[in-house]
Design a protein around this nucleic acid. Structure first.
Lengths: 169, 169
DNA sequence: CACCCTAGTGAGAATGAGTCTCATTCGCAC
DNA sequence: GTGCGAATGAGACTCATTCTCACTAGGGTG
């Protein structure tokens, strides 16, 4: 729980927010392919396209935003593939107050992180917290969950407020 | 940020999850009326009905669930009033992966808390964390937000997993 | 009390994000 | 090359939520 050790954590670990370089992209594709295989799914061109675009933008995006960054992205295929990729643990869907859901690469493929959620425009950006704080939160939540008969899998922590654009605009 | 001091925190502070007694219900209505007045809205019968039902169930509920607990709740009015109550800071809307949004009384009117989110059935229940942990999280988030040019207002922390029903069922 | 005048109501229509259908195409195995 | 299940994509469809609009309620004002 929290920050599980994933297959993609090893190479060029210092770069986080800028788009991935070619070596890490290959690693990513390999990791995704493995996950799809495990679920008896093929890693087709369309799915590669989705994963590559998500890796490139490196922030949670909606489907329309995704379509802006990727040419020729048929809606029904995109939604279907996002769902399959989600079930295989490759991406995660973030449902907020915004009318569209946001999608990003799932946690074992990228570092454990949380989100700054703009209550004005609905945009999301990533934040990374200190590991000690994460551990403390996990421990605290685990205790509370046990008391409620709840079996935890992972936590999510959002900070709501105004992004730079909405604050100054 | 976190657990702001609200007008309803004073009386019978030891009861949290069981439905409110008559004294606290009166306090609640008074606090809600004040908030609505401040926004030039009336505290009508339908709105009282909503607030009272939300206080009674004392957990986040969807609109259909709300309708089960409250007779004669016209859909369009319910949605409209929930939106107005949300804008006045009386209730908060929790948009998750479930197909319906969940609604509950907003934070200054109830204690600061977080949610256990069942990834199987989409149900929600409340959890309360240690204040020291909350403070630490807030401090950590505030630092990260400042670095990103983000103006924070409040945080939300969800624990995802399986509720008692879905784990055993 | 009679009259306004605005906020609120609720039934039904409209919206639109997301899902489903189905005929076609792809890609791996043999 | 052939077979066959998985994948594709255009379009129909679903349904939670929002919008419209004619109507009602309720609180000032004279």
């Amino acid at each position: 729980m929290g920050a599980p050790t994933g297959p993609s954590r090893r190479s060029t670990s210092s770069r986080r927010h800028s788009g991935p370089d070619e070596a890490t992209i290959d690693d990513l594709h390999a990791a995704v392919a493995r996950r799809l295989e495990r679920h008896d799914h093929r890693y087709t061109r369309g799915r590669r396209h989705l994963v590559e675009t998500l890796a490139r933008v490196a922030r949670p995006v909606t489907l329309p935003q995704l379509a802006d960054h990727a040419d020729d992205l048929p809606q029904s295929s995109a939604y279907r593939n996002l769902e399959i990729l989600e079930r295989c643990g490759v991406i995660s869907r973030i449902a907020g107050t915004a009318d569209h859901a946001h999608f990003e690469l799932a946690e074992p493929l990228v570092d454990h992180h949380h989100h700054l959620v703009c209550v004005s425009c609905g945009s999301l950006q990533d934040v990374h917290l200190d590991e000690a704080v994460e551990a403390l939160v996990d421990a605290e939540l685990a205790g509370a969950a046990a008391a409620a008969g709840f079996t935890p899998s992972h936590h999510s922590l959002d900070l709501h407020g105004f992004c730079n654009d909405c604050e100054t605009g």
